[in-house]
Design a protein around this nucleic acid. Structure first.
Length: 405
DNA sequence: TCTGGGGTCCTAGGACCC
DNA sequence: TCTGGGGTCCTAGGACCC
């Protein structure tokens, strides 16, 4: 369970893992070129039914936090400046930050746009210590990107993650091996990575509030209450055991497992025609993303969220993997139609394709040949046009007519 | 206070095969 | 005739993360 003994010499803290995490990333990027917003409560988000994606520390002092509905955020902090996210800018900053990480070690695992695990065991000769790597990264990102980055340094990924949270804002926290249990055991159970609202509730019902409580509960009890996997994992975590390696993220050799898209309507919808039009748009987007990634998938899943927020899914596994809009769309519409909804009010619909494999090696049924190749050519043409002219300006008119009456 | 959009992983039941 | 497990695939739902 403990990390295997390392032949390279870690320093005496036993720390080889860093977790680097940008503070209030979206908000910081949005305001770094806007001195007029300095010191003001800034909230990134928006939309008719949007949520807060990121809030500046000034906004947080009013109780605003990410994930919260914008309506509530505005109520808590009416003077907040609301900024729409600029995803292209954010992606560019994120890519630059990840490059900076890779300048310190090749073992970088991005977890999202604004955070990554780094295994620095191989960089110690160059930098001297893990803390030196952390300082180097924080300085470079502050210099080059003018945004703060907090770093946790610890013997395991989970601990490094907890440490970086403790380091915020704009700090550095080290958890040497001999202090692990002293660091962990006073924490509340819901601070652990993987313990959300529901699991925390369950643990509370068992009378477990701190990580120390968790550590001193028989693992069999935890497994019974939380399931085999989570029970074992939490018990191990509570003792700082974590064999999770830092794995440089998927390359072309390891495609993603699923690609999907969903959309919340501005207002609830009960018109099947509107829903099908949305399913077409989503299928078009998902199929295009699959082709761009060079993957195809066999299982198509439709998600429907009703006005009362209850959510259901329906899926079908096709005989061959596809990345063609008409196939994805036809499956999605059929799954939706079979629900037999009588003008139920819907809040959201989604389309996702799972079981992705490399499109080049995915078996295709040759019998379908002529027709499918026609579609493939058409789709390729659309992909090219979109590449050249951008965005949603191009969409084959034929697709529009494949919708059900 | 009414709750986005992108994902991942786990569980559980049933079908089917050996 | 009745009773077995184990493994894999499929489907649906749910928890969690940022």
């Amino acid at each position: 369970m403990v990390r295997p003994p390392d032949t390279r010499q870690p320093d005496d803290t036993g720390c080889t893992i860093l977790h680097a995490d940008m503070d209030a990333f979206y908000a910081c990027v949005a305001t770094r070129d806007r001195p007029d917003l300095a010191g003001l409560p800034v909230v990134v988000g928006g939309g008719q039914r949007g949520v807060v994606l990121s809030a500046s520390y000034e906004a947080r002092s009013f109780g605003v936090g990410s994930g919260m509905s914008m309506t509530r955020a505005r109520r808590l902090c009416p003077q907040a400046v609301v900024v729409r996210p600029e995803f292209e800018q954010l992606s560019a900053v994120s890519a630059a930050v990840m490059e900076t990480f890779r300048s310190a070690t090749s073992v970088v695992e991005p977890l999202s746009m604004d955070e990554a695990f780094l295994d620095v065991a191989g960089s110690l000769r160059r930098f001297g210590s893990p803390v030196a790597v952390a300082r180097y990264l924080r300085e470079r990102i502050a210099d080059e990107q003018r945004i703060p980055c907090s770093v946790g340094v610890a013997p395991t990924a989970q601990l490094a993650k907890l440490a970086s949270r403790r380091a915020k804002p704009d700090g550095l926290v080290v958890v040497p091996r001999h202090t692990v249990t002293a660091f962990l055991h006073p924490l509340a159970v819901d601070e652990l990575w993987g313990v959300g609202e529901k699991t925390a509730e369950q643990l509370h019902r068992l009378g477990l509030r701190t990580v120390g409580d968790l550590a001193h509960t028989p693992v069999a009890t935890l497994r019974r209450a939380l399931g085999e996997s989570l029970g074992s994992r939490l018990h191990a975590m509570a003792w700082g055991y974590d064999d999770r390696p830092v794995t440089p993220r998927r390359g072309p050799d390891e495609p993603e497992h699923s690609i999907g898209s969903d959309e919340t309507f501005g207002h609830d919808v009960d018109d099947p025609e509107v829903v099908c039009r949305e399913l077409l748009g989503l299928s078009t987007k998902v199929a295009a993303r699959m082709r761009a990634a060079g993957v195809a998938g066999r299982t198509v899943t439709v998600k429907v969220r009703f006005a009362d927020f209850t959510t259901i899914t329906r899926s079908r596994t096709l005989r061959e993997a596809t990345n063609l809009t008409p196939e994805v769309y036809a499956t999605a519409v059929d799954l939706f139609t079979r629900l037999g909804l009588q003008r139920a009010r819907l809040r959201l619909v989604g389309v996702r394709v799972e079981g992705l494999v490399d499109a080049a090696t995915a078996p295709r049924q040759l019998m379908l040949g002529a027709r499918d190749h026609g579609w493939e050519d058409a789709e390729r043409a659309v992909d090219k046009a979109v590449e050249r002219f951008g965005g949603s300006t191009v969409r084959p008119a034929t697709l529009i007519s494949t919708g059900r009456p």
